[in-house]
Write a protein that binds this DNA or RNA. Structure first.
Length: 494
RNA sequence: GGCGCCAUACCCAAGUGGUUAAGGGAGAGGUUUGCAAAACCUCUAUGCGGCGGUUCGAAUCCGCCUGGCGCCUCCA
């Protein structure tokens, strides 16, 4: 039996218990990218958040169907293509490929269906047809408009009243709030035949048509960025609920908060204040980005800064450190007996490890509280480190940390964080940071060898001088029993 | 002008009626170390933007004010 959960729905503006359309099943539609440029870290937040939502639902026993679309024909695509002298559909194809790489690089699992507008034209035309037939849309000069006044419930999601909207528009629309379902063909634009002549879909109709086809009317969760609430999602509701179906279009609406840059403004393509995923991923492990997103609640605004990802990487390293410590412990026996013989620190690790899954799930089942879930993980990490610092217990404590290791697996499964081996993580960090910081590992190794020689002959001044040089380059040395290791400093001293 | 959201320590951030206000980072001190790093321990908000109110009791509910953000045009 899937476990119940609560979530905040924009529609009701409160947290409510989830009731599925079909018992045991969750259908979710997330608005994807308009593919006219590379995705930036603001987009990535939405897709990581919904990836984690879907992973958690599946881990909770829900049979989950996840649909995320590509908008591959649109004004912005056409504008960009015309600027670059490229065919719009070719350009869109290129950025779909780019997006797929970014999603894979981020560790997001692919949705079950990734429909495209250009592959959904018949459904779109059919839906527009039913809207025209029902008196909710009208044709004018080869374009078709949705008639907002024909849908009295319009504004229910966003709280907007049609008469209070700002509008400078007039054109051929009957009402300023009316929006395009079908745009008549213009020279140089992609077009498809339709009962209203050649043209292409308007922006909003695609999601209605694709959700309808792949999930059916009245599906469970509709997700997207907070900036899509109006008009995009409002218009989706209007189209879908006027096209001959009964009941609401989607049962719950989830909206993720936006990334903000210094000064509090949101990150946006049009504002030019963005960092792309493909700029960042070569420099930092994907898991650092995931942790950055998951450390705050998905609905809150999330401040972006140059130190955000290095700091998240530091947090990640802390989790891996604890996991590595836990994995290094040895010993056998019955966990309770071993813990009892080892003392309070061992009992704490055992208790926290055993309690983790329940606490983690409780946090996630309460509107996907990833921040609280992570706090539980850090509490466990500290307890493990405290235990492992005692060399005497380290040889016996393995049974005590088994539940904690299971906790790390749950974290990896649900968050896609701490999913590598600690060794692979360190290697990954070293490779990406070395490249980003312009440090040659061979040079570091040579320096380290020279220092080892100096230390062997107790030439401390020389050894310290070498370490200072490495430190200045951002390389931190860790002397251990088995020799010296090095890592790269994650956050620059301020 | 309309609609909506937010305000918790130096920074990020959970908590939305009831024991000592989670967690992470930064900072200070200590343990450890040849010296460091990592790790561990201790400390860092008698207070949760301000002012009123409801209540036995409020960061948590209500009102007003101040500040900020999002949307109303493309936007994750």
């Amino acid at each position: 039996m899937p476990s119940p959960f609560r979530l905040y729905s924009t529609l009701s503006r409160r947290v409510e218990s989830f009731v599925p359309r079909t018992p045991g099943e969750v259908s979710i539609y997330v608005c994807g990218m308009t593919v006219y440029d590379h995705a930036h870290v603001g987009h990535a937040r939405a897709f990581v958040v919904f990836d984690v939502v879907v992973r958690h639902l599946r881990n909770s026993g829900w049979n989950t169907r996840y649909v995320r679309n590509y908008t591959d024909v649109d004004d912005k695509i056409i504008r960009r293509a015309s600027r670059d002298g490229e065919d719009p559909l070719t350009l869109a194809e290129r950025y779909i490929a780019s997006f797929r790489e970014d999603m894979a690089g981020l560790g997001n699992l692919p949705p079950d269906v990734e429909p495209r507008v250009t592959a959904s034209i018949p459904e779109i035309i059919a839906m527009i047809g039913s809207l025209v037939a029902g008196g909710h849309a009208y044709e004018d000069g080869g374009s078709v408009w949705f008639s907002v006044p024909s849908f009295p419930a319009y504004g229910g999601l966003s709280g907007q009243k049609v008469d209070d909207l700002r509008s400078d528009d007039s054109g051929t629309k009957r009402h300023p709030a009316d929006f395009a379902l079908w745009k008549a063909h213009r020279e140089g634009e992609p077009s498809w035949d339709s009962p209203w002549g050649p043209g292409r879909p308007g922006w909003h109709i695609e999601c209605s048509a694709m959700a309808d086809r792949w999930l059916g009317h009245g599906f469970d969760l509709h997700g997207g960025g907070l900036d899509l609430v109006f008009p995009h999602h409002e218009n989706e509701i209007a189209q879908s609920e006027c096209s001959g179906h009964h009941g609401p279009f989607a049962r719950y609406w989830l909206h993720n908060g936006l990334l903000t840059v210094a000064g509090g403004q949101k990150m946006g393509h049009s504002l030019g204040n963005f960092v792309t995923i493909r700029d960042l991923l070569p420099q930092f492990p994907a898991e650092a980005l995931r942790l950055y997103y998951l450390q705050s609640h998905y609905r809150s605004p999330l401040p972006w800064s140059d130190t955000a990802i290095p700091e998240a990487l530091g947090m990640l390293a802390r989790l891996y450190e604890a996991r590595e410590q836990a994995e290094s412990l040895e010993g056998t026996g019955q966990a309770d007996a071993v813990a009892a013989s080892l003392g309070a620190d061992a009992l704490t690790v055992l208790d926290l490890g055993r309690a983790f899954e329940e606490r983690f799930r409780a946090a996630m089942d309460d509107d996907f509280n990833t921040s609280l879930a992570l706090a539980h993980a850090f509490e466990l990490a500290r307890a493990i480190n405290r235990l492992a610092a005692n060399k005497k217990v380290a040889r016996k404590a393995r049974p005590v940390v088994e539940p904690a290791l299971a906790a790390f697996r749950l974290l990896a499964d649900t968050f896609g964080v701490c999913a590598m081996t600690p060794q692979a993580f360190q290697a990954d960090v070293k490779a990406r940071r070395s490249a980003a910081m312009g440090i040659d590992p061979a040079w570091v190794d040579a320096q380290l060898a020279a220092r080892a020689e100096a230390r062997a002959s107790k030439e401390w001044a020389l050894a310290d001088q070498i370490r200072a040089e490495l430190d200045a380059a951002g390389v931190v040395i860790m002397d251990g029993a088995a020799g010296s290791e090095w890592r790269l400093r994650l956050v620059s001293p301020t």
